[in-house]
C-alpha cells in the first residue's frame, strides 16, 4: 500500500455500490412495483390500465435493463459473493444483529430467486403484456401462490433490514440511539411492504378489490 494514496480500491467501490444499489434503484423499484400493483386493490381495469401504462413508457428497454435488471443482477450476484466470504456464527452468538445478518442472506437469496422467476413468468413469457386475468389465473395454483407469499415476505424483510444496514453502514445513523431509530424505521418499512404485498396477492387470488368504492359509480 502506498502511504500517500487517498483513494479506495475496487473492493471498496463494489461493496459501496452493492449497498447503494440495494436502495437505489432496487429498493425504489420494489416500492414503485408494489405501488403500481396496488391498483389491483381498486379494480381489474385499474390494474390493466396501470400495466398498460408501464408497458408503454418511452425508452422502455433501456429503463428496464439499466434501471432494474442489471442493478438487480449485480446486487444479487455480488450479494452472494459477500455471503460466501462471511461465516455465520449465530448458534454461538445468538444476538439480534447476528440473526438479522444471517436472515438477510437467506431472504436475499429467496428474493433474488423469486424476483428472477417472477420476471421470467410475468415479463418474459407474457412479453411484458401481463394482465389482471393472467396473474389471477396463476394465483389459483397453490404452489404459485405460496411462492408469491414467501417471495413477497422475503423481499420486504430484505428491504427493511437493508435500509437499516444502509443507514448504519453509510454512517447516516451512527449513535446507538440513531441506529435504534434506523432499525425501527427499517422494521416499519419491512412490515408495510409485507402487508401491502400480501393484500395485492389476496386481491388476485380472491378477486378482491377493497378500494373499489373509490371508483365513480357505474351506470
Amino acid at each position: 500500500m502506498s502511504s500517500t494514496t487517498t483513494q479506495p480500491d475496487t473492493s471498496y467501490l463494489l461493496r459501496k455500490l452493492h449497498s447503494f444499489t440495494g436502495l437505489l434503484p432496487v429498493g425504489a423499484f420494489l416500492a414503485e412495483h408494489f405501488w403500481s400493483n396496488s391498483s389491483a386493490l381498486v379494480s381489474r381495469a385499474k390494474y390493466d390500465a396501470t400495466s398498460q401504462e408501464l408497458q408503454t413508457i418511452p425508452f422502455r428497454l433501456i429503463v428496464e435493463w439499466g434501471g432494474i435488471f442489471l442493478p438487480m443482477l449485480f446486487h444479487g450476484g455480488y450479494g452472494i459473493y459477500i455471503w460466501l466470504r462471511g461465516k455465520s456464527n449465530v448458534s454461538a452468538y445468538p444476538w439480534v444483529g447476528n440473526w438479522l445478518y444471517v436472515t438477510q442472506r437467506y431472504t436475499g437469496l429467496i428474493a433474488f430467486a423469486y424476483i428472477g422467476w417472477h420476471l421470467y413468468t410475468e415479463r418474459w413469457l407474457t412479453h411484458g403484456t401481463s394482465t389482471y386475468e393472467s396473474v389471477a389465473m396463476d394465483m389459483q395454483n397453490p404452489w404459485y401462490l405460496t411462492f408469491f407469499v414467501v417471495g413477497v415476505l422475503a423481499s420486504s424483510f430484505h428491504l427493511g433490514v437493508g435500509i437499516w444496514n444502509f443507514l448504519c453502514k453509510w454512517g447516516l445513523a451512527a449513535t446507538v440511539r440513531a441506529q435504534q431509530a434506523a432499525g425501527q424505521f427499517g422494521a416499519l418499512v419491512g412490515v408495510a411492504f409485507s402487508v401491502v404485498g400480501i393484500l395485492i396477492i389476496l386481491s388476485f387470488r380472491f378477486d378482491w378489490h377493497p378500494f373499489s368504492a373509490y371508483l365513480p359509480p357505474t351506470k
Binding site: Y12, R85, G86, Y93, G97, N98, L100, Y101, C168
Partner: peptide, 8 residues
C-alpha cells in the same frame, strides 16, 4: 467495507 453490520 467488509463490515456487514452483524454488530456482534
Amino acid at each position: 467495507q467488509e463490515c456487514a453490520n452483524a454488530q456482534n
